[in-house]
Amino acid sequence: MEVRTIKVFTTVDNINLHTQVVDMSMTYGQQFGPTYLDGADVTKIKPHNSHEGKTFYVLPNDDTLRVEAFEYYHTTDPSFLGRYMSALNHTKKWKYPQVNGLTSIKWADNNCYLATALLTLQQIELKFNPPALQDAYYRARAGEAANFCALILAYCNKTVGELGDVRETMSYLFQHANLDSCKRVLNVVCKTCGQQQTTLKGVEAVMYMGTLSYEQFKKGVQIPCTCGKQATKYLVQQESPFVMMSAPPAQYELKHGTFTCASEYTGNYQCGHYKHITSKETLYCIDGALLTKSSEYKGPITDVFYKENSYTTTIK
């Protein structure tokens, strides 16, 4: 009895394709271990004539594949690729409408935090270190965002349907971005203890939790000093293409032309909904596939993004 075979390709990165001759009487799992086709788990399936010449994702289970996976995804987590594939199996079914010149995501599976993050990423200057993220990001900007969303979920250790947080998501993504040249110098002034300067680099240099107003941050924000008295913390120097200011959701007025974009969060910790506000020729609110415009805006804002380049204080 002759062994019926077909020729397929296996890959971990969709760049390096490895030619395989597979036995049609055995499952993919018996031949390769966990195997995925377009995100779908085909591990328990036997090869079919229609699979001839198709590319299958496999887990990096030998040295060659491990090197290829690390170079593309910059992670050695053995569960990463499987999590990416199972997320992709959902995100490829989502709709990605162009809204006001940006790629958004039609609401499904509690994905409003991903839509808000995706919209924000198209408006701030950011370059990702893992080629996987950078490639998928370019495709997302062009309207094909399924891979990018699935990668975000995998890097953030999230599953489809789980509630997510924009600030946490951005923080994970910033860790995989090139923020080497970003720098922030802060000064804390206390009447009792004097003053202390701190220099922050990388992710810490672009994120701040405690106030939404970048102007206020430049002037000074009140913080408790270690001595128990009130101290003032203010920005001395900022070198970065953008800054992200966050605070627990509270009524906040966004003035046209003073910011790049913002995240609105309605609801409580267990259950809520994100919308995205962007400042173009007027203010726009993007909620999944829905767009509304207004000249002014007041609502429960939790993150505001500002364009920056270089700032030095005039406070002496």
Rank of each mutant, 00 (worst) to 15 (best):
188 V>I: 13
115 A>E: 04
161 G>E: 08
105 I>W: 01
126 L>D: 02
209 M>H: 15
175 Q>T: 09
92 K>P: 03
172 Y>S: 12
294 S>K: 12
40 A>V: 13
188 V>P: 01
153 L>Q: 01
185 V>A: 03
164 G>M: 05
14 N>D: 14
106 K>F: 00
298 K>G: 00
54 K>N: 14
313 T>N: 14
12 V>F: 08
194 G>R: 04
221 V>E: 00
204 E>I: 00
70 F>H: 07
206 V>P: 04
314 T>N: 15
302 T>G: 02
5 T>P: 12
80 F>D: 02
112 C>A: 04
175 Q>F: 04
290 L>V: 13
102 L>T: 00
305 F>W: 07
145 A>D: 03
51 H>M: 07
108 A>I: 02
316 K>L: 15
239 E>P: 03
17 L>Y: 07
79 S>V: 12
299 G>H: 00
178 N>K: 11
252 Y>F: 10
237 Q>D: 04
111 N>L: 08
99 V>I: 15
172 Y>H: 12
253 E>I: 13
119 L>T: 02
149 C>G: 12
135 D>Y: 07
201 K>P: 07
110 N>T: 05
311 Y>A: 05
107 W>T: 02
216 Q>M: 09
235 L>H: 00
84 Y>T: 03
92 K>F: 10
62 D>N: 12
214 Y>W: 05
113 Y>T: 08
266 T>Q: 00
22 V>M: 06
248 P>L: 10
277 I>K: 03
45 I>P: 09
47 P>W: 08
134 Q>I: 01
205 A>H: 07
87 A>V: 05
172 Y>I: 15
124 I>L: 14
253 E>R: 02
160 V>H: 01
185 V>S: 02
44 K>W: 12
243 V>N: 01
140 A>P: 04
150 A>N: 09
211 T>L: 10
61 N>Y: 15
166 V>F: 04
121 L>T: 04
316 K>H: 15
161 G>A: 06
153 L>H: 02
8 V>C: 13
225 C>D: 01
225 C>S: 05
147 N>V: 09
48 H>D: 15
172 Y>R: 13
117 A>W: 02
291 L>F: 15
155 Y>F: 08
65 L>V: 13
73 Y>E: 04
16 N>R: 11
148 F>K: 06
143 G>A: 05
161 G>M: 06
103 T>R: 06
164 G>I: 04
90 H>S: 12
82 G>Y: 10
92 K>N: 08
213 S>P: 00
114 L>K: 04
189 V>W: 01
189 V>F: 08
24 M>H: 08
256 H>I: 14
166 V>Q: 01
64 T>W: 08
298 K>C: 14
152 I>V: 13
198 T>C: 08
130 P>F: 03
290 L>W: 10
278 T>S: 12
52 E>V: 12
36 Y>E: 11
224 P>Y: 11
142 A>W: 07
28 Y>T: 02
256 H>L: 15
6 I>V: 14
124 I>N: 04
77 D>N: 10
78 P>R: 14
297 Y>Q: 02
223 I>C: 15
120 T>V: 09
240 S>A: 05
93 K>W: 07
214 Y>D: 04
272 G>M: 00
287 D>V: 04
111 N>Q: 03
98 Q>H: 12
302 T>L: 04
89 N>A: 12
54 K>Y: 14
147 N>G: 11
49 N>G: 13
264 E>S: 09
232 T>R: 08
189 V>Y: 07
29 G>F: 05
56 F>D: 05
81 L>P: 11
200 L>H: 15
82 G>R: 15
83 R>G: 01
150 A>R: 01
73 Y>P: 07
81 L>N: 00
201 K>Y: 14
230 Q>P: 12
270 Q>P: 00
298 K>F: 10
25 S>M: 02
235 L>K: 04
54 K>W: 14
280 K>A: 12
58 V>K: 02
295 S>N: 15
15 I>M: 12
273 H>W: 08
282 T>G: 11
238 Q>F: 02
101 G>Q: 07
23 D>P: 12
267 G>Q: 08
127 K>V: 12
64 T>C: 15
169 T>N: 06
152 I>H: 04
198 T>D: 07
27 T>G: 04
42 V>G: 00
88 L>Q: 07
275 K>E: 03
281 E>Q: 02
28 Y>M: 00
168 E>V: 11
104 S>T: 14
191 K>L: 08
248 P>V: 04
148 F>T: 06
60 P>E: 04
122 Q>G: 04
274 Y>C: 00
275 K>R: 15
41 D>N: 12
309 N>C: 14
183 K>F: 07
287 D>S: 00
276 H>T: 07
72 Y>D: 08
90 H>F: 11
257 G>R: 05
108 A>C: 14
309 N>Y: 10
19 T>R: 11
261 C>S: 04
27 T>A: 13
171 S>D: 09
151 L>F: 04
